[in-house]
Computed example of a mutant assay.
Amino acid sequence: MSRFLWAAALWLASTTTQAVAAPPDEFIASYAREHDFSGSILVQQDGKAIYTRSFGLANIPFDQPNSSRTRYKIASITKLFTSTLILQLRDEGKIDLDQTIARYLPDYTGEAADKVTVRQLLHHTSGLPGYDQVKDAQSAIREGIPVYQLPHSSDELLSRYASGPLVTKPGSTFEYNNADYVVLGKIAEHVSGLSLEQALRQRILDPLQMHDSGLLRQDVIVARLADTYFHRDDSGKLTPDLPAYPENWYAAGAMYSTPGNLLVFANALFGGKLLSAQSQALMLEPGLDDYGLGLWVYETKANNRGYRVAKRPGRIMGAQAQLYRFLHSDTTVIILANTDAVDLDEFVAKIGREVMR
């Protein structure tokens, strides 16, 4: 999956910092300034938000600053919502993770129908071919990205881009792939009897009062949504993202949210309020490439101590997002950005090390 289209979090306000313990205020502010970070950051520890702040502009031409109320495109963090829906349906006895695609999508015509299981889709080990072939911004500018720049229904995404011949044996190889989560989105719809948007709202967003979150569509204006910008390879200049139909990222990357809403989701998910203990354990059991069911789970070190973390990043052009959770210490770092100026993998890890001093 190209970094340019890694669909794949930052919430911060132009607000004051709340110091509960010794939050890494100086480090974050300095790093943000030095790297031209634009977005929002939220850090929670021991049930309290110890750092909330926003940087940069949500809209550059109108000089509109990012704030705690800014909504951001969260790219592939959407996948974690999709995997949660699938596991909720598992908890209700409506989905067996080891049944194949055909069990839940009888009209699916791809080779994977009777060969690929729901679990393999969740783990990105299905063997389905990836359809994001753009390697860099210049090739996207030159050649376009028809998968995203032409309108497609979710049924068309499934039949045209997620039903191709298998390229590896199912279960044998990790390959990060939006096609897997397109199939999972359609399974969630078919089994629940709801559209993806309805399922998200009824099962997750409304119960958690996540009123600043939802699915993006080209024909719907989302209030307070940050514009996104990326750096051109040829000039190095910051430029608006290429035009695209955001709904074409569907269950793999079409959502928007705020850091505050994502923290509510993270606390509910990791706090056992959305899934059974068994499903939560399945989600957090790393498979190939340390990938669980919708997120990476691995061991890291901070200040010479070992920690188990869950990480769900996302990226689509200038939109970047990180949800980073220390699983046994109630510490969460959320970063949502509207430019590609900063390597958020590095930034979130550095914040994590600072917080865990």
Results as ranks from 00 to 15, higher is better:
195 S>L: 09
191 V>N: 10
220 V>A: 09
257 S>R: 04
262 L>G: 03
201 R>S: 14
188 A>R: 10
254 A>L: 04
210 M>Q: 05
217 R>H: 15
242 L>C: 03
232 R>D: 10
190 H>A: 15
224 R>E: 12
244 A>H: 09
237 K>Y: 02
189 E>T: 03
213 S>P: 10
188 A>W: 08
219 D>Q: 08
236 G>R: 09
262 L>E: 12
226 A>L: 04
250 Y>I: 01
244 A>M: 10
207 P>T: 10
223 A>S: 13
237 K>V: 03
234 D>W: 02
217 R>S: 06
217 R>Q: 11
192 S>I: 12
269 L>A: 09
212 D>C: 10
259 P>V: 09
250 Y>K: 07
180 D>S: 14
209 Q>S: 15
209 Q>D: 11
223 A>V: 00
207 P>N: 12
202 Q>V: 06
253 G>L: 05
180 D>K: 07
209 Q>G: 09
261 N>F: 08
188 A>P: 13
219 D>E: 06
265 F>V: 07
205 L>M: 12
179 A>P: 02
235 S>Q: 03
185 G>Y: 08
233 D>L: 13
229 Y>Q: 01
188 A>K: 07
220 V>H: 14
246 P>H: 06
196 L>A: 03
263 L>P: 03
239 T>N: 05
193 G>H: 07
252 A>Y: 02
240 P>S: 03
209 Q>M: 14
189 E>V: 05
263 L>H: 11
188 A>C: 08
261 N>K: 05
218 Q>W: 06
179 A>D: 01
194 L>M: 15
249 W>K: 14
232 R>K: 12
229 Y>V: 04
263 L>M: 15
231 H>K: 08
215 L>M: 15
242 L>M: 14
246 P>G: 04
211 H>Y: 15
231 H>S: 10
189 E>S: 08
233 D>T: 10
200 L>N: 05
230 F>A: 03
227 D>V: 00
220 V>N: 03
234 D>A: 12
262 L>D: 02
252 A>L: 05
211 H>R: 15
193 G>C: 09
255 M>W: 00
193 G>D: 01
197 E>V: 08
234 D>Q: 09
198 Q>S: 12
256 Y>P: 02
247 E>C: 03
210 M>R: 09
245 Y>F: 15
202 Q>S: 14
224 R>D: 14
248 N>K: 04
259 P>Q: 02
215 L>T: 06
254 A>G: 11
211 H>S: 13
180 D>L: 10
238 L>Q: 14
192 S>L: 12
242 L>N: 01
238 L>W: 05
241 D>L: 02
179 A>R: 10
203 R>M: 07
189 E>C: 09
235 S>F: 05
222 V>D: 06
222 V>P: 09
220 V>F: 10
231 H>I: 03
262 L>V: 07
264 V>P: 03
226 A>V: 00
202 Q>M: 12
245 Y>A: 04
185 G>P: 11
217 R>D: 01
241 D>E: 02
227 D>E: 09
197 E>D: 15
188 A>G: 14
181 Y>W: 06
237 K>M: 07
206 D>L: 11
232 R>T: 11
266 A>W: 06
253 G>R: 11
248 N>Q: 04
243 P>S: 05
206 D>V: 09
237 K>E: 08
262 L>C: 04
204 I>R: 05
249 W>N: 07
190 H>S: 14
230 F>D: 00
206 D>H: 13
